[in-house]
Amino acid sequence: MNNIMVLGSTSGAGKSTISALLCKHFTLQGMNVSPFKAQNLSSKTFITPTGEEIGMSQAYQAWACKREPHWSMNPVLFKPGHESSMQIILKGHPIADATSRDPSSREVFMSAVKDGYRVASERSDIVVLEGSGGAAEINLSDRDIANMTTAELADAPVILVGDIDRGGVFAGIYGTFMLLPPEKRIRIKSFIINRFRGDISILEPGIERLEELLDIPCAGVLPYMKSQRITEDLSDTNQEKHVWMKNLEEFYHISQGHLNYTLLEQIVAGNQ
């Protein structure tokens, strides 16, 4: 099975958008692509044509693949309700009386993730997997489902994304990489710096140093894009889809000059 997984050093690093770019790229190459996010925490959801509920960002990614959204693309969904309640949606359907803190529920979630990934991969030539939050939350490593656990389940190569807009991106990528145990670290084949503004020549010495330190190549520096964050608060789904697809089209076009897609293809092919 060909696949690739995008992990982040924080939440909001740009995983969803970069996953969508990869979905679009491989779809344009004539492949049948599926997005996959094992576990999502979002109040923004989408009901598939067959009546299953998944995270909105996987619906977008499905459209980037020119496909209908499907439950297998996001088998575990936590949907915050009012006050501190949390609805748990497994394989597209809400389940009652489960809390995410119950140790036995991890088994239940993992089984949904496995089913989801199996179905997603059966329906596709290539699966683009997206992690969740920061990939090295060392306080939660034994509870991880959506990051390295999923990468191992799918035996996927990983690219790590860091957001430079807040500064500290080298530290974030280096720290995320180094806080993972060596056997997991070796899955990380490349890193991407997202939301860069300014003079790239000033950044380059840092990228070279990080490539040396981690012994993996940088797959690109994506520029800051305002439209990157337009996923919230449009009430009409069709209108929203239209806007988002237009943004993705534009961003994909721009990304050609910044992302090393050849390197990413080689990573998918297992040549890195």
Binding site: G8, S9, T10, S11, G12, G133, G134, A135, A136, E137, I138, N139, R166, G168, F170, A171, G172, I173, Y174, G175, T176, M178, L179
Partner: peptide
């Protein structure tokens, strides 16, 4: 708040 705090702390000092 954004997650990744341990990684950022570790990475900052180790770089």
């Amino acid at each position: 708040e954004w997650g990744g705090a341990f990684a950022y702390a570790y990475g900052t000092l180790m770089l």
